[in-house]
Design a protein around this nucleic acid. Structure first.
Lengths: 338, 338
DNA sequence: TTCCAAGGGTTAATCGATTAACCAATACGA
DNA sequence: TCGTATTGGTTAATCGATTAACCCTTGGAA
């Protein structure tokens, strides 16, 4: 117990060379190792509690079994955890570990992060942003295999996975139309993110299709926060031709909508149905009544990204893939027939 | 650009041996390297875009500049992000990176996680739990330097940092007493966590000190969720001798308390003052009125833990330190004079 | 009998740094 | 005029694996 045993110790204990020990433990070298020899080596390794030094192995094999995870702003968003967890689980299953770097969105810092990871000889990089962004891959990444997470390039030159915002929006809207709603309002943010653009456009299409002018039912505010959601909802609801249902950009805004409805004496869902996006754990099930919301599949995206990365490790020349991950709806009690 | 340059390439370009190049770049070896030689080597390195291979370096120096972060359940709690971020920032500042492993609280898995990290020759380990727990350090950790994060051992044999729950509770309670409140209720959970025990006991002391029987003003429910917070608050508020203020175990329960108050026609803070613990970003500022809450200093704890770990890397025999991190109060609008 | 192939290992080179041990030349004090 | 530091390097060993290149038996086939 004084020192970690090395491969040489195992070899000595089994009475073979380190080459044989290595091959026996790793099942390499084809038929060169007899089965009783292999068992002897394995037994010796188990006996000594041998654990390979992956640093030494990595130096020789040029593989570290580590994946770099570069996150835009890991801390401040509650989604990051799920994304990391999904990536982590898929990685661990394949014997990989995640080496994390958080950049605060700073572009220089991203370059530095990439360099720091490359110095450590990671096998590949996951480039994650929060909130579905269209980015350029920093040239510092060179030929390091990589996959984009909740982000993509404009030209699709890197493998990437993003939520299927359009599908999610359609699903959650059909919760409303299925209940007979036609005048469906939308409370959203003015921030320039993909999520906003896609949700807005999809809603617009859908409402237009039922012969209604979307601009009458749209409210935009500066940020996707609860207080501004409240204000937006007030503007939308405090009039005679108010919508019978509201689709909110996200749960935080929906929380404000709930408050506005309460103040105006509108019961949810009897007087007003509400649906939303993000399905945040701290909000959607906590509101009363529970909020029907389309979930962002962060866990699944993290998983997918690692699997795709591992695939690219094996076939570096594979065509990049753009994946749209479905956004399942969590149905709760905020929708009632019109 | 075909291959990453090695130290040998830099040495050749500068016309020196690799030993000299190494010393010149790392400022080691005292006065042995002349200043013009050093400059020549540095220039060559910069010219070639040389980046040291830390795997090779790690093999020789037995230092990888990586810290293992073992998290109890990184994903599901929104606090984890802040903790990771604090640790990450402190680590990065010192040239370290975080290697993450998430265990789902499974004890075997923790042993496996430790082994996986040790195989990779991490320099030290951060053992983090969510929600301040008293744990035993797995023996698998052996002599690897480690620090406990939001956790501690019963005997204080490992360095550890936990929130100062007692101090935070006192601070947030004096928000109420300072406003003249005496009959302060407490809505808490029955779950067996340190946070509950300390907050409860501290509240009990304080209330008893002002001559009131705490048991009259205490409500316990099975879990610290919003719906149960709501039920608990109903029980506490729906009677004549109701308290004038409530201290909630956490923000999620406080969210339920808000709802109960609204239903009973009690205005916050005019008719009822509310304070809480956790200061969760998605809740405390989002409620109306904003909720005064004691913050869990996760970022600071993460930072502290890394600094302490780095210290122990230098002085392995230093006495273990138990640190209680202050919980600052975020004062908002949920407290009014009695 | 002679050779070749297959089976089962071993030897030694290698990955890319760091660093202990050594060495040559100059300076300096006695 | 020596002996001894001091300055400014170089050589070679080392970290702990993996793996290409050999090597020795034994069993058959020619």
């Amino acid at each position: 117990m004084t020192k970690q045993p090395r491969l040489a110790d195992v070899a000595r204990a089994a009475g073979v060379s380190t080459a044989t020990a290595s091959m026996a433990l790793n099942d390499t070298g084809g038929t060169r190792i007899g089965s009783q020899t292999r068992d002897r080596v394995r037994a010796a390794a188990a006996e000594l509690g041998y654990r390979p030094n992956t640093v030494a192995r990595g130096l020789r094999t040029r593989r570290t079994q580590m994946i770099g995870f570069i996150g835009d702003d890991v801390a401040t968003t509650p989604f990051a955890g799920q994304m990391i967890r999904g990536a982590h689980d898929a990685a661990r299953e394949a014997g990989f570990l995640l080496l994390m770097v958080d950049t605060s969105g700073d572009h220089d810092e991203t370059g530095e992060a990439i360099a720091a990871l490359q110095e450590r000889q990671i096998d590949g990089i996951l480039l994650a942003t929060m909130y579905h962004q269209v980015i350029e891959v920093p040239k510092a990444i060179g030929s390091t295999p990589h996959v984009l997470l909740d982000a993509r390039t404009a030209d699709g030159s890197s493998s990437a996975v993003v939520p299927d915002e359009r599908g999610g929006t359609l699903s959650v809207l059909s919760e409303l139309t299925g209940a007979g709603h036609v005048r469906i309002g939308h409370v959203t943010t003015r921030e320039d993110v993909q999520a906003r653009a896609i949700r807005l456009e999809t809603w617009r299409e859908r409402v237009t299709a039922s012969g209604i002018d979307p601009d009458e039912l749209l409210v935009e505010v500066d940020h996707a926060t609860t207080p501004l959601g409240y204000e937006g909802a007030k503007r939308l609801l405090d009039r005679d031709d108010r919508p019978t249902a509201i689709f909110c950009f996200n749960d935080r805004m929906a929380m404000g909508v709930y408050r506005a409805a309460a103040e105006l004496g509108l019961a949810i869902p009897a007087d007003l149905s509400v649906v939303s996006y993000d399905d945040q754990d701290l909000i959607a099930p906590a509101l009363s009544p529970g909020l029907t919301s389309a979930a962002l599949p962060h866990y699944a995206m993290g998983q997918w990204a690692v699997k795709e990365l591992l695939r690219r490790l094996d076939e570096p020349d594979a065509e990049p893939v753009q994946h749209h991950m479905p956004c399942p709806v969590s149905r709760r009690s905020s929708v009632a027939p019109r």
